[in-house]
């Protein structure tokens, strides 16, 4: 076991897959010579050369269009969209082209590609560089959606995404880039569609994603020590496919569900989770389902304002206490 940052794990994950499979190519803005604006892709150009690791112009439609055309003709591209907010610039490629073309062609084409992007708040970048947009992607049939919360998952889920025959949106939570964690030695490949129970408890199930996993875990520790409340924390890791078995079995056991989401409130992934639990576990619930989200507003830039709107450990603790009366 080695300790890597989440940031280093990105480059390690890409390198692992490029080493293994010559069909894997990587393109994006500032990803090659500069090593990425978040320094997530340093060393890849030197290791794999300019044919496989390519800087592009600031042309998001071209980046994803090229990735799509390459994927449907035999390559396995990884494309970077620098900030997830920029997905709006090339959403036609994501939602109309990459997502739909397998279906529209009755399965004649495959799109084994990965779109990596830095998602979420924490850097005081303001509304156009900070939003968590994974729920946009979740709403589009034909896309798989992944959001790792640890360095080990970055490597393992990225490998699974690259090897998957379908298009995967891979959301790296930028507030996690500096965090550290153990990663397995040697090749590491995980599985899409499997949530992880990060902490087992009896009284309430917290379901979280990305950067909210660590906050949910911290909230769970405080609830335990301050109130004797025992919380399960489920790290979803993948929104599509969604591991409803893990969610349902944990909520059935605890009787309570609190989702912890960095995305704005309306139609966030927690709404789908809540709907599934309400439909399928209604009579096992001991309290109303609660969603902790950012408000339905763009993200502000100032330190105190950004901190104020995000789900904090305090907010999570408060809401959990409320559901337990």
């Amino acid at each position: 076991m080695a300790e890597l940052t989440y940031r280093e794990a990105v480059a390690a994950g890409i390198a692992q897959e490029m080493q293994r499979d010559p069909r894997v190519v990587f393109l994006g803005e500032d990803v090659a010579s500069a090593g990425g604006v978040f320094k997530t892709t340093e060393g890849l150009l030197q290791k794999f050369g300019p044919d496989r690791v390519r800087d592009t112009p600031i042309s998001e439609q071209a980046i994803l269009g090229v990735a799509m055309g390459a994927a449907m003709t035999g390559l396995r591209p990884i494309a970077e969209i620098m900030f997830s907010d920029f997905l709006a610039v090339c959403w036609d490629m994501v939602a109309n082209q990459i997502a739909k073309t397998r279906y529209m062609t009755n399965g004649q084409c495959s799109f084994p590609l990965v779109i990596r992007t830095a998602n979420g708040a924490g850097f005081r970048f303001g509304a156009q560089h900070s939003q968590s947009v994974e729920s946009w992607a979740m709403a589009v049939p034909g896309l798989k959606v992944v959001a790792p919360s640890t360095p080990a998952d970055v490597i393992g889920l990225l490998a699974a995404a690259v090897r998957d025959p379908d298009p995967v949106l891979f959301f790296e939570q930028k507030s996690l880039y500096a965090t550290k964690g153990e990663v397995p030695d040697g090749e590491h490949v995980d599985e899409l569609g499997k949530a992880k129970v990060r902490r087992a408890g009896e009284d309430v199930t917290l379901v979280a994603l990305g950067a909210m996993v660590a906050r949910a875990l911290e909230a769970a520790e405080r609830l335990q020590s301050e109130n004797g409340i025992s919380a399960t924390v489920v790290d979803l890791r993948t929104l599509v496919p969604l591991d409803t078995q893990t969610i349902l079995s944990e909520v059935k056991r605890t009787g309570r569900l609190v989702t912890v989401e960095e995305n704005p409130r309306l139609c966030g992934w927690g709404a789908e989770v809540a709907s599934i639990v309400a439909e399928e576990l209604f009579y096992d619930l001991d309290a109303p389902i609660v969603r902790v989200t950012t408000p339905h507003a763009p993200l502000p830039a100032a330190d105190n304002l950004e901190d104020f709107v995000l789900p904090s450990v305090e907010k999570i603790v408060d809401r959990v206490r409320m559901t337990l009366g």
Binding site: V25, D51, S59, Q61, A62, L64, G65, V66, A67, M68, G69, A70, A71, M72, T73, G74, L75, P77, D92, M93, N96, Q97, T101, M104, T105, Q108, C109
Partner: peptide, 29 residues
């Protein structure tokens, strides 16, 4: 696809970058 007809695209202009990607792939391969 068996005839090389890699799709007809109904969002104006979208397929130009996609064709460029197929060309990149052809050269790479």
């Amino acid at each position: 696809v068996e005839h090389g007809v890699m799709g007809s695209y109904a969002i104006v202009g979208a397929h130009l970058p996609i064709a460029a990607g197929a060309a990149w792939s052809a050269r790479y391969r």
